[in-house]
Write a protein that binds this DNA or RNA. Structure first.
Lengths: 104, 104
DNA sequence: GCACTATATGATTATATAGTCATTACATGA
DNA sequence: TCATGTAATGACTATATAATCATATAGTGC
């Protein structure tokens, strides 16, 4: 049986991949259909579809049908907070490593 | 060449695994040596060591030597904010799925 | 029903990951 | 220097992941 720590890992895993991060970033503008998403991130339709359904089942995205098109959106605003906080950490890391290089 | 999106994925990946989340949770109490960490999370010493060095190189943990012992600590306080925010999301997801079940 | 568009899925491949056991490296103190 | 305690690494296995190509499914309008 899955416990809390596994669910937390699932959410984080759903964010922890470059293609998926690009999708998240693109969806900052609001819900978008698959046909808009995959050209925007320069990935194949099928690959994009897989990443989308992976994030859907992890609880990161929501999905809405409208005729032929399927619209995906970020489900919880906190997802963006998480991603933004990580960007902050990365920037700190990069500036630290930069200083270390200059110190040589 | 690695770009920003890859670094973000690296940080997230370093958090996106149950064993590593257990380590992070244990390190909330402050820095701990490997000999304290692996019994606390009930994992083998070698496996624990691998996860620790993975998180070290991702920039999630810091490391300090003191004689025979190696002390690891959470490097950026924002790491805990990220993990806590994810816990929040998980709780929202769980209560939502619970409601869906009851609705049947 | 048929053609068309949009999305999802099956099969496959290459690569990455987590874990285990055995061994090695390293620091300390007798 | 030798025995001991602590951490890291090599070799290996099983499993998961990301990506691709081809195909299937499903909604729309004729």
């Amino acid at each position: 049986m899955k416990d809390l720590v596994d669910f937390r890992a699932d959410i984080l895993k759903a964010l922890a991949q470059p293609t998926r991060l690009k999708i998240i970033d693109f969806l900052r503008g609001g819900e978008r259909c698959v046909c808009e998403i995959f050209p925007a991130i320069s990935e194949e339709q099928s690959n994009t579809s897989r990443h989308l359904s992976m994030m859907l089942s992890a609880g990161v995205l929501s999905r809405r049908k409208d005729g032929l098109k399927i619209y995906y959106a970020i489900k919880h605003p906190e997802i963006l907070d998480v991603v933004d906080m990580v960007t902050l950490i990365v920037k700190q890391e990069i500036s630290e490593r930069h200083k270390l290089l200059k110190a040589v």
